[in-house]
């Protein structure tokens, strides 16, 4: 290995394992929601070249579809409410207004105002399935997204148009230094999300979720907007480059195989203690029972 960072230094383009990279370039075209999905489970895809090829083809079809789809339009026309915003408003008034109130103003005790939260927050909350909430509890759990990628884009457009706020990043979200990403992750993120993003418990039933299923954009927007109890990491605190480094580290380490065998959750001594008793000691006890049994 000659380069420090094979993820970012290698030329993108041909070859099955590069599939996800092609996706991240398309993020620039303004289709982040669709792009994010492709990253999911890319670990397995990388291993199987033809599956990756198939996915690349699917991805291409998906992008073409969304580009040609009439509802899809993100051109920055300030003249009036674009069609996407209108569709987003409609969705909002159907699904979100109960808690977040009319015109994103929020309802006391039910839901916060969404003015100024920006499309990044909408993307994170809706794409991870945290919103819409099923019920009020310590923490909104992530679940399969309720809205389609297209609907999420519409909601994002609506919220962004009314109060602004953090926007989605563009470009390759893994364009960052792996080692620096690791350092920053351990300094800022590992305290809650565990060494390599396996997640951890917080006080009174809250928790820092595992990053196992999180895609690049979700990780990025989570840092940018600080959902729920997570602190906000604004662009002046962690620069976009540093955020990309962190995304690169998290995703690279997540996808990398465990050289030492079965990873037992990568959480360290608790799992290892269970293994030595349930596997090691149990196997040996079985062994000495057998040795003691009469032939």
């Amino acid at each position: 290995m000659s380069t420090t960072n094979p993820q970012s230094d290698a030329p993108s383009g041909e070859g099955a394992p590069r599939g996800p990279r092609r996706w991240s370039r398309r993020v620039a075209d303004g289709s982040p929601a669709a792009a994010a999905r492709a990253r999911r489970r890319s670990k397995q895809r990388r291993r199987v070249a033809n599956v990756a090829g198939l996915m690349a083809a699917l991805v291409l079809t998906g992008t073409l579809y969304s580009a040609l789809s009439p509802a899809y339009a993100t051109d920055e026309s300030n003249t009036s409410e674009s069609s996407a915003e209108a569709a987003g408003r409609e969705l909002y008034e159907r699904s979100c207004i109960t808690c977040h109130g009319e015109n994103l103003e929020g309802v006391p005790t039910r839901g916060p105002s969404l003015i100024g939260v920006g499309e990044a927050a909408v993307y994170f909350q809706v794409h991870t399935g945290r919103m819409p909430l099923v019920r009020q509890e310590a923490q909104g759990p992530d679940k399969p997204a309720v809205f389609s990628d297209e609907e999420i884009d519409q909601l994002m457009a609506y919220v962004q148009a009314n109060g602004g706020g953090p926007t989605l990043p563009s470009g390759d979200l893994r364009e960052g230094d792996l080692t620096e990403g690791g350092e920053l992750f351990r300094l800022n993120c590992a305290s809650c999300h565990n060494f390599v993003g396996e997640g951890g418990a917080l006080s009174s039933g809250k928790r820092a979720p595992s990053l196992e299923d999180a895609n690049d954009l979700e990780i990025y927007t989570a840092m940018l907007t600080g959902p729920e109890n997570m602190p906000v990491f604004g662009d002046n605190q962690l620069t976009p480059e540093e955020k990309r480094s962190i995304v690169n580290y998290v995703q690279t380490v997540k996808e990398q195989a465990d050289p030492g065998g079965f990873g037992v959750g990568r959480i360290g001594p608790v799992a290892e203690g269970v293994v030595i008793w349930v596997v090691g000691v149990a196997a040996l006890l079985f062994g000495i029972f057998w040795m003691g049994s009469k032939a």
Binding site: G226, V232, F233, G234, Q237
Partner: peptide, 10 residues
């Protein structure tokens, strides 16, 4: 001005 409200920096 570098930090957002609700943030923590070491």
């Amino acid at each position: 001005g570098d930090q957002q409200p609700g943030s923590l920096e070491t």
